[in-house]
């Protein structure tokens, strides 16, 4: 990017700067207020927490770029968790377990994609149904009880380190990089912006729009699967209720990051800032001993402010 930005370009990156600025301000203020904040232990902690929401938010970005939504991700986390728990209990190899989990998640993605792309269900309704079915599957499969995970290699996915970096953070970074490359450097990624911006025009331009929609849900389900693996490994347990409400945190991160719910406009960089901000804020409030109930209120207000700033900057064209 050159430095001679036009007014319009400047306007469009302004909210991104605002997000970066807010993130820096939080960091600055917190390092004053709390001696624990800037320690490497706390930073590691923050990023480990962020990785869960972050990975789902990356997948969610693909779906929301199309103007769609995927409410089923939390349920997919639950299903993956109980499958892993059970299969590991039965002594299956950890890698095989991961593959099975991936397969199950992809089936959920295909299910969503089929309903939306081929049967013209509204994404909200289709994935709400999948959410309900998925949670039901997780509870029925496990009979509502958790499995205990003892396999040390599997547990490392959630608890281990690569050098000094927790493995979930390594996975988060990899997911972000892969997502970024797909969206910005491949033809396939370009199609998401085109289909989200104008599905009919994209189709007339030769884009296989149904396939693009289908793959968005598969990508989202795969991200949910990865989170299911990390979460089960971290808590050493296959929980049927794992991942409850995760869809909403992910949608919040995407919205804060400036991706339009109408599709066509947005970026993974924005989503990245969105989930970092949410993570930083809840960690800060924890350190300051602010009751978690208030944290919810703050998060809600944050969404409104961020989206408002974003709308303002885009609405200038009128």
């Amino acid at each position: 990017m050159n430095l001679n930005l036009t007014r319009q370009e400047f306007k469009s990156i302004l909210p991104r700067f605002a997000l970066v600025a807010v993130v820096l301000i939080i960091v600055g203020v917190m390092s004053f207020l709390s001696p624990v904040f800037m320690t490497s232990k706390n930073m590691t902690n923050i990023f480990r927490q962020i990785s869960i929401n972050g990975i789902i938010a990356v997948g969610m970005t693909f779906v929301i770029l199309l103007g769609d939504i995927d409410l089923s991700v939390g349920a997919v986390v639950g299903v993956v968790s109980v499958f892993c728990g059970n299969l590991l209990e039965q002594g299956m190899n950890w890698f095989a377990v991961c593959l099975v989990a991936l397969g199950v998640a992809v089936i959920f993605g295909i299910f969503n994609g089929t309903l939306v792309a081929y049967f013209n269900f509204q994404p909200f309704v289709a994935t709400l149904a999948t959410l309900t079915i998925g949670r039901g599957v997780a509870l029925a499969y496990s009979d509502g009880r958790p499995y205990i995970i003892t396999n040390p290699t599997f547990k490392a996915i959630g608890q281990g380190y690569l050098g000094k970096v927790p493995i979930p953070v390594v996975i988060l970074l990899s997911v972000c990089v892969v997502g970024f490359v797909i969206l910005n450097y491949t033809t396939f990624g370009r199609y998401f912006f085109a289909v989200g911006g104008n599905k009919n025009a994209a189709r007339l331009s030769g884009v296989k729009t149904k396939r693009v929609e289908m793959s968005a849900y598969i990508i989202s389900a795969i991200c949910a699967c990865i989170v299911g693996l990390i979460l089960s490994a971290r808590i050493s347990s296959g929980q049927p209720n794992a991942g409850e409400g995760y869809e909403l945190d992910a949608i919040a991160a995407v919205a804060i990051g400036g991706t339009s719910m109408n599709g066509g406009v947005g970026s993974l960089g924005g989503t990245l800032l969105g989930f970092i901000m949410i993570g930083l804020l809840s960690n800060s409030m924890n350190l300051l001993n602010i009751n978690s109930f208030y944290q919810q209120i703050v998060k809600g207000c944050l969404i409104i402010i961020a989206v408002y700033v974003d709308m303002k900057s885009k609405g200038d064209k009128k």
Binding site: R190, F193, G197, N198, A201, G206, G264, V265
Partner: peptide, 19 residues
């Protein structure tokens, strides 16, 4: 409705069917 994707750049629109 059918020709262009509004909200995206001129470049992306011209390139869309020629990627």
């Amino acid at each position: 409705e059918l020709g262009l994707v509004f909200g995206r750049s001129i470049r992306e629109n011209i390139a869309l069917q020629n990627l």
